[in-house]
Design a binder for these strands. Structure first.
Lengths: 226, 226
DNA sequence: TAAAATTAATAGTATTACTTTTATATTTGC
DNA sequence: GCAAATATAAAAGTAATACTATTAATTTTA
């Protein structure tokens, strides 16, 4: 079994039993990604997942308290993976502008290649992030779940990006707001491109309009704030 | 009965019977806004609403096919109301920059005052837009619902805003993307401010950080695109 | 005032998320 | 190597959900 460099720690309170630690746990994660992709989160149930992995509904409940917990786990895994890639891609870049440019590119671009990180298919997971991502926090229980630590990894990612913003312009006063607007905005524009094109812009000559737009947005904004 | 200047037309296919046209219909709308605020959309049911308006679950189904249809109706009413206010506030402004500034302010600022438009409480409706707004389109049926015309009023609003952007800078190439990023981004930042402050920035001295941020974002971006 | 339309009430369906219980494997400590 | 702890599977059950169908009562209107 391959070790994954991305760990969702216990202090996030996202699982009852760490799915990394058993074959069944891994099968739950792998197959839930496939099944949520196929059915959408609302139609996805632990019963159907149990059938798919030739196990039982009640066994899945040993790992995740609810299907909502499982969704948050998957989305969190994605943010942690993004942060990992971000650190990796920018570690040798000394120029702050170049660092930020690379960072914005990574957080806004499509995931098209399966990085084959263990039992997780990143391309399918990316689709879930686009289509179902905001369901992780649009709940009546956000505040409670936030206190439990559910969103720590996401906050850490935003913090890291904000620091890069300040590296380019230490006087900029909205670093967190800018970066969460970019990361969430890019997700939304992807969704619009796919389903509601009237709400977005696509430039045919551009390989990725969403990436270009957000890079321009960030840098034009920072340059005017001296 | 006061006439509402905001009409959700039949070609949006959002209702079975227009709730404006009867007292029961209006009670359904008024009270659903209160009840969704109170319980959140997931815990809200037609059964509970029926009890609240001292009518019956099945009667509500005569107006709205499902609770999802009702939610989309409410959100759509909000977009139409925003557009109405937008047109009203900018109709006499000739300077394109000033027009756009006013527009961005209107679409990003909080609704704190009940405009007392008939039977709709705009402050409560605004809360629903913040907390549940994106549930209107994050569904497996988006494409189908889009074809039915569910999102026409929202698209019209984005179109109108894009035209104002082009009024300021005719060479700007991402008008729709910029405006939907602003409108959706402002909603999300409001939610973060309330529930996940680690993902956003708040400046105490500023009366409304979200408005200031987005105005700056738009204008710095447009000025660098000649 | 009769017909049409609207509303109310009841009861029903299939499915959902999740729990409980019990039995059977599998792993682990000694 | 075997008992004890743990993990898994299976079945059955619960309360609630979203929605439908039917029927009856009430209101509107022609």
């Amino acid at each position: 079994m391959q070790e994954l460099p991305i760990k969702i720690t216990t202090d996030c309170n996202l699982y009852l039993k760490n799915p990394e630690t058993s074959e069944l746990g891994q099968r739950i994660v792998t197959n839930s990604i496939e099944l949520i992709n196929e059915l959408g989160f609302e139609a996805f149930t632990f019963k159907k997942l149990g059938k798919k992995i030739k196990s039982n509904e009640s066994s899945i409940y040993r790992y995740f308290e609810s299907k909502h917990h499982l969704l948050v786990y998957l989305i969190t895994w994605y943010w942690s993976w993004l942060e990992y890639r971000l650190v990796f891609a920018t570690s040798n870049i000394l120029d702050p502008e170049e660092r930020l440019r690379i960072a914005v590119e990574i957080i806004t671009k499509k995931v098209e290649q399966d990085f084959a990180f263990g039992y997780i298919n990143e391309v399918l997971l990316f689709n879930i992030v686009i289509d179902e991502g905001s369901k992780a926090y649009y709940t009546k229980d956000v505040d409670e779940e936030n206190e439990k630590g559910f969103f720590k990894p996401y906050k850490r990612l935003i913090k890291r990006l904000s620091d890069m913003v300040l590296g380019v312009n230490p006087n900029y006063i909205y670093p967190e707001m800018l970066m969460s607007t970019v990361i969430e905005g890019a997700r939304k524009q992807r969704f619009f491109t796919e389903h509601l094109p009237g709400l977005t812009t696509t430039i045919k000559e551009d390989k990725d309009t969403i990436v270009s737009f957000f890079i321009q947005l960030v840098f034009h904004n920072l340059k005017n704030n001296v």
